[in-house]
Design a protein around this nucleic acid. Structure first.
Length: 832
RNA sequence: GGGGCCGUAGCCCAAUAGGUCGAGGCACACGGUUUAGGUCCGUGACAGUGCGGGUUCGAGUCCCGCCGGCCCCA
């Protein structure tokens, strides 16, 4: 670990391990990063938060990157002298604990809390500027009690409800999943193919907030959130404008409503399709087609979502022996059942316009259904080309719409439908309600009692928390398709809170994303036992000024947390509608171009890297590797080089500290170095504020080199400018390499931590340059360079440029067409 | 299939409102220090911005097309 040995005086050598041991003890004693609640404390308040970790084991390289980035932001704020809230906690409910408990025949809590302790120690060693007094764990009854309390408030507001419906079921984890947890038809966690089941489950009515979730994103623009995250959320919510159109069905009293984004193509609807697995298809099926339909439906049920949504697969379907009536032209169109229409989107049925929708066209061609073009786009007839046309064009074959453009037609037909009472303008969303029940043990019990008399009865607030039974372990927790809680009869059987009769607890637990949807509010009053959080404290700290975490949460966690915040706003419990004012997505740490994994054998162990290079060097490596949002390939970076740099920086601080006392007036110091120092301050500050931490580090490196040069071949270590530079090095380096910064600061003769309130401002007079290089171009090629004053006038600069011998030579006898002058940096002489 | 982001030395990456492509680092080479090696100090070479067009006095930056990579939605 010691990087330098031999002729150096041992104490002047940066010894990472020794410094870690020394400063961890001091920080633990002095607690420099505790947020102040003192009302008299006038410092600006700042809330910086890293997404809390899941205690899956010890910290790994991913945590190292995330928390190094977040810590740059937090420590910068501390350096500015702000009152920073930078708390930590654990997202400690979840499946891995349960699986570990089954494997080791233990209780999930044992594994969970042991891992939390391990991670807590690692965080201390990693020197993250955390406020340890606010620590929380979502698996504590003191925490999940408030999940239950919030669930009940949602229930009262009809934002939590139970319904029977087709849900995503993971056969491996033996539980249902939210839509957001199904990626490409597979379980987000274990990648098993998800199947459909019809179950009675609890949902949060997030669709009620779809418009606000979309529209409030306006608050997050201008670089406050990464554009791609906003884009992903927009896509996920998937708002589309169109119309609901009522189709009468022969032999049925009630019409069937379909949603379409293209009401303008209504005259081109030549058939009607119900999702094969929707109740509607079953209902519409004529008796003589029932057998065929049921066979088909059973086939569809066996298909995975992946197969079903594949565009490669030929279209399948059956005719249901019924006809629907097109409301605008009275046309009888056949009703089919197919699997390319999804039961849970829109109304589970569509009007098919084969000329202008490729899926409909594929289906029509396969089954010999008519294709009628109603928008002339100037492309070939879809019936012949096999290519549906979706673009702009002029309406045709469409009665009153003929001759209109697409947008006009949409407007006109919507009005016609509304006048006739057979349809209306409508908005459809891709977003589904949030399925929150899980058939697993290690989560928050849903605080509802099912009573044969009273139905769904909320557990009264004063009986919260509904605690998990403690006597389950090992095989008791094995997945069996129903929650393990169902088997604990003395837990399940309770008196109905309303009528006192025999009743049973709901045995499902909540999706752990409920836990993480409001934890950032709990940090403001982590021990409050009368409410989930103190509204006034949240008003003082919130919303979060800077949130830091991985892009893998771009939809799930961030969407849910935004939803919760809006509900809490409506309840008057928080005063803001967006929880995270700014968001930084850090990248992943990969190795040799691939995600680290055991099977590839390319894992990099954080503990081993720290052992080899020390905490500071590891942190410096991840921060310097590139922009924060980029992935870091560990094969491309060099922690050894980081360690060497820290050594250089440390020696500068030690030598400057030995040569002059603290408090030395820098104004008499070497001007060249002073200018370099203040330019560095200026550039580092700008870079940190713009999240360009890698650039900030590069500027610190330059400053160290400049100081080194000043000591070796300039004014010498005792020059006041060298001390000034060394102090700036200590302060700026503290954002990234806290140990060496603290030790350097002490060697510079300071007492107290370097980490708080020491950021310097660049002195403007030291930033001005007495001369700048002006390039002179002839026909856009650089032909000469001039040293000029920064405030030179355009006229003067033009005169100087034209006076240049070199320039005159290149102009020759060509005619000057134009001279572009951009004082003081450039002159371009355009010649004929 | 639709949408988005990205492509700068062997490698990781910089480049205010379009204005000298190269800040920083890795690797490499050379010199100094060193008994030697490493460390340390210093010096240096290598690219013209994926390809092809366009706008402009001037394009890494703006526009169009293509190639390659990544992401989101189908």
């Amino acid at each position: 670990m010691t990087a330098v040995s031999g002729d150096q005086v041992a104490s002047d050598v940066y010894d990472a391990r020794a410094l870690q041991e020394k400063w961890q003890v001091r920080w633990a004693k002095e607690n420099p990063f505790v947020a102040s609640e003192d009302p008299a404390d006038g410092r600006p308040r700042r809330y910086v938060l890293d997404m809390f970790p899941y205690p899956s084991g010890d910290l790994h390289m991913g945590h190292a990157e995330a928390f190094a980035m977040g810590d740059v932001v937090a420590r910068y704020r501390f350096q500015l002298g702000e009152n920073v809230l930078h708390p930590i906690g654990w997202d400690s409910f979840g499946l891995p604990a349960e699986n570990a408990a089954i494997k080791h025949n233990s209780h999930p809590g044992e594994w969970t809390y042991a891992n939390i302790e391990t991670q807590a120690e690692s965080f201390q060693r990693y020197a993250v500027s955390l406020d340890w007094t606010r620590r929380l764990h979502t698996s504590d009854p003191e925490y999940y009690r408030w999940n239950q309390w919030l669930f009940l408030r949602f229930f009262e507001r009809d934002l939590a409800y139970r319904k029977e419906g087709l849900v995503n079921w993971c056969p491996k984890d033996q539980t249902v999943l939210a839509n957001e947890q199904v990626v490409q038809g597979r379980c987000e966690r274990c990648h098993t193919e998800v199947v459909r089941r019809s179950l009675n489950q609890w949902y949060f009515r997030i669709t009620e907030y779809a418009d606000r979730l979309l529209d409030d994103m306006d608050q997050l623009g201008d670089g406050k959130w990464p554009e791609r995250v906003l884009l992903m959320q927009r896509n996920w919510i998937g708002r589309s404008y169109g119309a609901d159109v009522e189709f009468a069905i022969e032999g049925r009293d009630e019409p069937v409503t379909v949603f379409t984004t293209r009401p303008d193509t209504l005259y081109g609807a030549t058939f009607f399709v119900a999702a094969a697995d929707a109740a509607l298809a079953d209902e519409l099926c004529a008796p003589e087609h029932r057998e065929e339909f049921e066979t088909y439906r059973d086939q569809v049920a066996k298909l995975s979502d992946i197969e079903r949504q594949s565009t490669e697969r030929p279209k399948t379907g059956v005719f249901l022996g019924r006809y629907a009536i097109n409301p605008v032209n009275g046309e009888r169109i056949p009703v089919w059942a197919a699997d390319y229409v999804l039961a849970e989107y829109g109304h589970g049925a569509i009007m098919a316009v084969p000329a202008h929708d490729q899926r409909d066209l594929d289906f029509a061609l396969k089954f010999g259904l008519p294709v009628r073009e109603v928008v002339d786009t100037g492309e070939g007839d879809p019936a012949e080309t096999g290519v549906a046309t979706a673009g702009e064009g002029t309406l045709t074959n469409s009665g009153p719409l003929n001759g209109l453009a697409k947008d006009e037609a949409v407007e006109r037909i919507t009005r016609i439908l509304e006048e006739r009472g057979t349809g209306q303008g409508a908005v459809n969303y891709r977003l589904r309600d949030w399925l929150l029940s899980r058939q697993r043990f290690w989560g928050t019990p849903i605080p509802i009692v099912h009573c044969p008399e009273c139905g769904e009865v909320p557990v009264p607030d004063d009986q919260l928390p509904v605690k998990l039974p403690e006597n389950l372990k090992g095989a008791d927790l094995a997945p069996k398709g129903v929650s393990p809680l169902a088997a604990v009869t003395d837990w399940v059987d309770v008196d109905c809170p309303r009528c006192g009769g025999a009743a049973q607890r709901d045995t499902d637990t909540m999706d752990t994303f409920v836990d993480s949807s409001w934890y950032f509010l709990r940090y403001c009053s982590p021990n409050l036992d009368t409410a989930p959080f103190d509204t006034e404290k949240v008003a003082e700290w919130g919303p979060i000024d800077q949130y830091v975490g991985g892009v893998e949460h771009a939809i799930l966690h961030l969407l849910y947390a935004r939803f919760f915040t809006k509900v809490l706003y409506d309840m008057g419990m928080v005063g803001f509608t967006e929880p995270f004012s700014r968001l930084l997505n850090q990248g992943q740490v990969i190795n040799q171009g691939k995600a680290m994994s055991k099977s590839l054998g390319n894992g990099v162990d954080l503990g081993e890297e720290i052992e080899k290079y020390g905490v500071d060097a590891v942190r410096l490596t991840v921060v310097f590797a590139g922009p924060p949002e980029d992935d870091i390939d560990w094969a491309d970076v060099s922690p050894g080089a980081s360690l060497k740099f820290l050594n250089r920086a440390f020696k500068v601080m030690v030598q400057a500290g030995a040569a002059s006392p603290p408090g030395t007036d820098p104004s008499t110091g070497d001007l060249t170095l002073r200018k370099a120092t203040h330019r560095a301050i200026d550039q580092i500050t700008t870079a940190v504020e713009a999240y360009r931490f890698n650039v900030a580090v590069a500027r610190i490196m330059e400053l160290v080199t400049a100081a080194r040069k000043a000591i070796d071949s300039g004014p010498g270590a005792a020059d006041p400018a060298v001390r000034e530079a060394a102090e700036v090095i200590a302060v700026t380096l503290s954002l990234v390499a806290p140990y060496v910064a603290e030790e350097g600061w002490e060697r510079l003769g300071h007492t107290g931590s370097v980490a708080i309130g020491n950021w310097r401002r660049a002195e403007p007079e030291l930033l001005v340059q007495e001369s700048v290089t002006c390039v002179v171009q002839v026909a856009s090629k650089v032909r000469d360079k001039l040293e000029v004053s920064p405030d030179i006038s355009e006229q003067e600069l033009e005169r100087l440029a034209l006076a240049s011998e070199k320039v005159r030579g290149f102009i020759g006898d060509r005619e000057i067409h134009k001279i572009v002058v951009r004082a003081p940096k450039l002159v371009n002489i355009v010649v004929g």
